[in-house]
Design a protein around this nucleic acid. Structure first.
Lengths: 147, 147
DNA sequence: CATGAGTCATTACCTTTGCTAACTATATGT
DNA sequence: ACATATAGTTAGCAAAGGTAATGACTCATG
């Protein structure tokens, strides 16, 4: 357990401490929401489709770094579970567009809610000063995550 | 992009912001170190064995939430790559113990080094104030990750 | 001590998920 | 009109996970 700012003077030491804590924290968060029995790729696909409103299989394959035939199967699975639906592409008969169903959106919402409830619960056990420090750090972590 | 502490007054809002940023940040860190072509389970197994010094296949299976036959295979793979080695159990002839080879330890060290170097590089692009805020938050994130 | 039950790792078989090769349908350029 | 490119899908293969079964070992009991 680190003492407040002790041993964190260098970027390397801070990076090391953050790497360990963040990995552990996100691993634990992931475990809170693993009831849907979707594979990581399936879940990520659902998230991507929701974020973009609609995507083609090719776009999704590239987005998730899998080959198109694999993505065809992922989409088929999610469609079979009623989480995604296919439609003809508006302008290109070779393509299809994929969008999230209300059921799929609900699953994602529940996933997010579960993780955030778990984290919020832990935040409540912190002191007000600790919470304030995290509030100050949150936008910086956000910045780091998009750099 | 969040403005400093704006909209983070509630635990729920802070949890939501942290969930997104931390997931993204750790995802990106993972991508930096994916040259070893180990599966997530193989890597996690290697990490677990190193941390515990020696473990049995049954312990590892439970630790990584896979069934024993699957873990037998993971161990065989890692052993074939010279990253783990098996030995007879000191007191129970049914069991074997698994430990990390110097090569396995070196691979993990390199993995950690790569991730931390990536993160440290990004830390260097922050302002001193931003870095200070992360330094203040680091022990709290550590605390959160073990609660 | 012998026997039965329990424990442990492993093998065999099956399913799922990823890849590559090949194919069909459609779109585009000449 | 024809050749080329694009998009999604199917088929076959490999890898990783599960379940069922097996053999060896350990422990408890009579």
């Amino acid at each position: 357990m680190l003492t407040n700012t002790q041993n964190l003077r260098s970027d390397a030491a801070l990076a090391s401490a953050l790497r360990v804590s963040l990995a552990r924290l996100t691993r634990r968060m992931r475990k809170q929401a693993a009831h849907h029995s979707l594979t990581p790729t399936q879940l990520a696909t659902l998230v991507a489709v929701e974020r973009h409103t609609a995507m083609t299989p090719g776009e999704l394959a590239e987005h998730e770094k899998v080959q198109p035939p694999s993505m065809t199967r992922v989409i088929a699975k999610l469609e079979a579970r009623g989480l995604l639906e296919r439609a003809p592409h508006p302008t290109d008969r070779r393509q299809v567009t994929v969008s999230v169903t209300p059921q799929g959106a609900a699953l994602l919402k529940e996933e997010r809610r579960t993780k955030e409830a778990w984290l919020a619960q832990r935040l409540r056990d912190l002191t007000p000063e600790e919470r304030a420090a995290l509030r100050a750090a949150a936008p910086i972590l956000e910045k780091l995550s998009t750099m």
